[in-house]
Design a protein around this nucleic acid. Structure first.
Lengths: 220, 220
DNA sequence: CTTGACATAGAACGAATGTTCCGCTAGAAT
DNA sequence: ATTCTAGCGGAACATTCGTTCTATGTCAAG
């Protein structure tokens, strides 16, 4: 008995073809076109396998609609991988004197306002990302200059060596530093190797606002 | 006489509907669906206006294909997203002690070996680009650290203020600096505003190897 | 061997959909 | 006024396309 979730080569070919066809033509293929592409002479067999794919969750079909196919998210994320561009919302500016302006959790993720396009290949993850533009030269010790764009990930936990945006309660300022736990103290190390680390004795004085994933500097 | 390029409200509605429908359904609407959406009872009128839109360059149509519509680039941002990734060849490493390793001009641009993916939106141009990974901390005065990726453009000329990779014949080293012509001298200014510019009296001592377009720093 | 589920093929059917033709109207040009 | 054209509506038509039905073959379970 074939287990749920397994696809035959034929079905894999079909998905692949639907994907390519949709991308190239701008609309999905008909049953007969699919059949011809994967070497099936009978429309009913194509129909049969399409229904299998629907059962497995790879496809949505609309009854009695010509070319009424659509790849589900399960599949279309794979397609998006092909397209490769990720849009990260640019939620504000960051500078030393203020906490990081986090994106409101209530906001619809796809706020159509402003964003920066990145190739997916640059990031290991694509959830919870947002971008900030650095204002001023206050983060030079992190080798981040005025106008640079910092892509961060909203993330409460961190691991030794991560570069994070922290709000220092005592100093009332935001900095970008590599963070390390050393005993009960926390060490914050600038990215610039010529500069000195400094230590915070009370962990509750540092508030990690996000993990820095990427820094982009556009010249011109 | 209606001039080329002008669209009636009806035609604008049609484009709008096609766009929304395609996005929501995953496939384009049929003629009759368009008619119903914009309040046209006759399929021939829809057909007529679709052909007008084709003439104006907003649509592509495929004959005898149901739902054989596609928005052209002029209209479609979705299509643009699909091709939004640019692959820039990663041709080597750069550090102070060596001239910039330029890509051989004979190389096929699309060398499938190694590359970095970038969103087209990040760069104003896409020709003559190549990427180098920075080795070591010798370019900290340009706010560029170990492991950072510098995207450059092979370009002989430069303008005041450009950040360029220069080979200093006297010092036998490569640096990234903002370059300015001041009288007969050339001023090289570090990106880090806390550091001093310095001057080169003989312009032939500086060899501009390329213009820095983008700096990307991947954390983790 | 028989049975039943699974996969396939071919053909016929009917619904969905694009295409074409004819007629009508309003406004601009002659 | 006449002519011309863009735009519209309705209907018939032809094709595309999804759907259904029947038949065949395979393979493992009983």
């Amino acid at each position: 008995m074939m287990a749920k979730g397994k696809l035959s080569d034929r079905q894999r070919n079909m998905l692949d073809f639907i994907q390519r066809y949709s991308r190239d033509q701008g609309y999905p293929p008909s049953i007969r076109e699919i059949g011809e592409a994967v070497g099936i002479s009978s429309t009913s067999v194509v129909n049969y396998n399409l229904n299998r794919l629907v059962e497995e969750g790879y496809l949505d079909r609309h009854q009695n609609v010509s070319r009424g196919l659509r790849l589900t998210d399960k599949m279309s994320t794979a397609v998006e991988r092909l397209s490769g561009v990720l849009r990260v919302p640019l939620v504000g500016r960051i500078f030393a004197g203020q906490p990081v302006p986090l994106p409101g959790t209530d906001d619809p993720v796809f706020g159509a306002d402003e964003g920066i396009e990145l190739a997916r290949g640059l990031l290991p993850v694509e959830d919870g990302l947002f971008a900030l533009q650095v204002k001023g030269d206050s983060m030079i010790d992190a080798m981040v200059g005025d106008g640079d764009i910092v892509v961060m990930r909203r993330q409460p936990d961190w691991r030794n060596g991560d570069m994070v945006a922290v709000w220092l309660r005592g100093k009332e300022e935001t900095t970008l530093k590599h963070i390390y736990k050393e005993g009960r103290r926390i060490r914050l190390q600038p990215a610039n190797p010529t500069m000195q680390s400094f230590y915070v004795d009370d962990p509750s004085d540092v508030e990690v606002q996000g993990k820095v994933m990427l820094v982009v500097r556009q010249l011109q």
